[in-house]
Amino acid sequence: MIIRRQTKQINVGSVPIGGMSPISVQSMTNTDTKDTEATISQIHRLEKAGCEIIRVAVLDQEAALCLQTIRDKISIPLIADIHFDHRLAIASMENGAQAIRINPGNLGGEGKLSRVVAAAKQHRVPIRVGVNSGSIEKDLLKEHGYPTPEKPTSLIKSAIRNVRLLEKHGYDEIKISIKSSDVMTTVSGYQQLSQVTDYPLHLGVTEAGGLIAGTVKSSVALGILLSQGIGDTFRVSLTRDPVEEIRVGFEVLRALKIRERGPELISCPTCGRTRIDLFSLAEEVEKYVQTMETPIKVAVMGCVVNGPGEAREADIGVTGGNGVGIIFKKGEIYKKVPEDELLEVFMEELKKMEEEGRKR
């Protein structure tokens, strides 16, 4: 049983973070924020996949001015990601950002930071103090060295120093992240940070990589930390379509039995008995079930000999043979169809189950 670490609760728009609120799954757009049409379109796809909070990069004043247009067309909270220019942080909040991500130490001094805090108070916008291993202050690196699994001190010191700056100006609507591209440095850093602060923590492995490497690194780090009750919200960072980040994120939560969203998909690893294009079938089914919300178990199996028996606990499954496919429910054959119609018929059955689930 996972026992959540007790943290202060803040709210990013309508989404509570920390306390006993659900661990939320975030992503970040990779579009040009000034291209509002493309950005809104991508956010809509992310919403459909289950994304609960979205972050966009604000590189200049024009991008900041686009935030209200974007916010008006989406249904999840909008975070502005700011670096170096305090004026962009202020403009983002004035134009609808519901939270900002900054590194307070690189905004140009306390005077400029105080103006950011004043705007955050006025607009009731929480601040994420986001420190990466590549953005630690030089004096901390000189004193404590580059962060490692054995000694992530400089990461932690940087985060706490910047939190104290915000507190000095009377602000405590804060969440913290300390990300490294190294898995065990990330784990060690968050473990130690969680012992010295009760602010909510945003988890993630920065620059994790593409689909395979990024999924593995993020899943290992997040799995360890979340299983220890550490973490209130997170992003799986992939060099990939950000929709994939949401898919991986919810699978991590499902594997830990923390949260479930939509179907669980199981599929066999294939063997010499496989007589259908299982890879394509599984891929198409996986794409579709990501749009579903009903928490059922779906199986995609490779052969009619063992498929239904091996996936007996699945609510519904599909498998194929030489020219014929079968759809089974709870391990029992439900329907036989020609192989070239198998995917279409199976999708229709999934749609029916989704509609039935919504009526309950």
Results as ranks from 00 to 15, higher is better:
97 A>L: 04
267 S>D: 01
198 D>P: 02
85 D>V: 00
27 S>W: 06
146 Y>N: 10
316 I>C: 10
264 E>C: 11
291 T>A: 10
354 E>A: 07
188 S>N: 11
213 A>Y: 04
276 I>S: 08
358 R>I: 12
246 I>V: 14
134 G>Q: 06
178 I>L: 10
38 A>I: 06
186 T>K: 08
319 T>Y: 00
335 K>Y: 12
93 M>V: 10
43 I>M: 02
22 P>D: 14
124 R>D: 15
260 E>N: 13
296 I>C: 05
188 S>V: 11
341 E>I: 05
61 Q>L: 15
45 R>N: 12
221 A>E: 04
232 D>F: 05
360 R>D: 12
314 A>K: 11
116 V>K: 04
241 D>M: 10
348 E>S: 14
292 M>A: 13
277 D>F: 05
322 N>G: 13
285 V>M: 11
306 N>K: 06
185 T>L: 02
331 G>Y: 07
218 S>E: 02
120 A>M: 08
35 D>I: 14
147 P>N: 03
329 K>A: 08
98 Q>A: 12
105 G>Y: 02
257 K>T: 12
102 I>K: 03
318 V>R: 07
206 T>M: 09
78 L>G: 02
235 R>L: 14
303 C>F: 11
321 G>M: 02
296 I>H: 05
212 I>G: 07
10 I>Y: 08
294 T>R: 06
170 G>H: 07
141 L>F: 11
151 K>Y: 13
14 S>G: 03
333 I>H: 09
115 R>M: 12
22 P>I: 10
312 R>V: 13
277 D>C: 08
236 V>I: 09
182 D>L: 13
83 H>I: 08
172 D>Y: 07
330 K>V: 00
98 Q>D: 10
141 L>Q: 13
15 V>N: 00
239 T>Q: 01
106 N>H: 01
112 K>C: 05
305 V>Q: 06
101 R>F: 06
51 C>I: 11
195 Q>D: 05
307 G>N: 10
290 Q>F: 00
261 R>T: 01
314 A>Q: 10
228 Q>E: 14
179 K>Q: 12
259 R>I: 03
76 I>P: 03
328 F>I: 05
57 A>R: 13
339 E>F: 05
118 A>N: 12
351 K>Y: 06
50 G>Y: 05
129 V>C: 03
247 R>M: 14
41 S>W: 04
314 A>Y: 09
315 D>C: 06
73 K>W: 02
82 I>K: 02
116 V>F: 07
159 A>I: 05
168 K>Q: 12
243 V>H: 04
302 G>A: 01
256 L>C: 07
228 Q>M: 12
107 L>K: 01
234 F>G: 04
